[in-house]
């Protein structure tokens, strides 16, 4: 009798074991509260060996389908799963994101083109890539979270990947900067510092030497294939 009833009620929570580990499938049509209560019930109803799972620290991936979870809800979910079964939630995988996040991602990959001279004391800051049609004069500064392409003379400062992207690059038709920064690394260009000579038209972060390097522009497609979006 009890079994029959169980079959009639729809399952909002399904647990699957795969090669990659445990996956918790959470239905995306019911309410969040329904989900929580069933999760609570299910995790209790299948009492795994508490002691073993505690020592093993089993991790689980949660798939929530087309449900959007706020940070707060994610926290509640994590806590509940851990309290009940000592399962560590590895990743909460949702198929939807907020418009805000989507815009952010879009902006991150967009190229913003600006046509003007960046003069001494001026700072141009963009999200994503920057295409500057004009010069950066000494004392001027351009910053982007992505790459910086200057279709003119770069005589001031350029900071690519300023939110931490180390793969960002700086290119300029005429490369004569006072300083180039990529993420948190920088290279100062001193006339009487012979260790850095500016050759070519691009600057990038070199993983091998852990420093910013200048080189000819044609090597970029080898070291940064992601610049190709064809």
């Amino acid at each position: 009798m009890a079994q029959k009833q169980k079959q009639n009620t729809p399952h909002f929570v399904t647990i699957k074991g795969t090669k990659e580990g445990l996956i918790l499938h959470l239905d995306d049509k019911c309410s969040f509260d329904q989900l929580l209560s069933e999760l609570e019930a299910k995790l209790i109803r299948t009492p795994a060996d508490d002691t073993t799972s505690e020592t093993q620290k089993l991790s689980v991936n949660v798939k929530v389908g087309k449900r959007y979870l706020s940070d707060n809800q994610k926290d509640i979910l994590r806590k509940l799963v851990y309290q009940k079964k000592h399962l560590l939630v590895d990743e909460i995988d949702s198929e939807v994101i907020t418009k805000e996040k989507a815009d952010e991602l879009l902006r991150e990959t967009e190229i913003t083109s600006v046509s003007r001279i960046i003069r001494s004391g001026q700072v141009l800051k963009v999200q994503g890539d920057l295409l500057l049609i004009g010069d950066v004069n000494p004392g001027g500064c351009v910053m982007a979270t992505g790459n910086i392409f200057v279709m003119g003379a770069l005589k001031g400062m350029a900071h690519a990947g300023h939110s931490g992207r180390k793969d960002a690059v700086v290119t300029a038709s005429l490369m004569n900067p006072t300083m180039v920064r990529i993420a948190d690394k920088y290279v100062q260009v001193d006339k009487d510092n012979p260790t850095i000579d500016i050759i070519g038209e691009c600057a990038f972060f070199d993983e091998g030497s852990m420093s910013v390097k200048f080189d000819r522009i044609h090597i970029l497609h080898q070291i940064r294939p992601s610049l190709n979006r064809l």
């Binding site: 003069r119 001494s120 004391g121 001026q122 004392g139 001027g140």
Partner: peptide
């Protein structure tokens, strides 16, 4: 020249 550049930026 550097200061002139700055002032031109402001004038613009």
């Amino acid at each position: 020249v550097r200061d002139a550049d700055r002032i031109i930026g402001l004038l613009e």
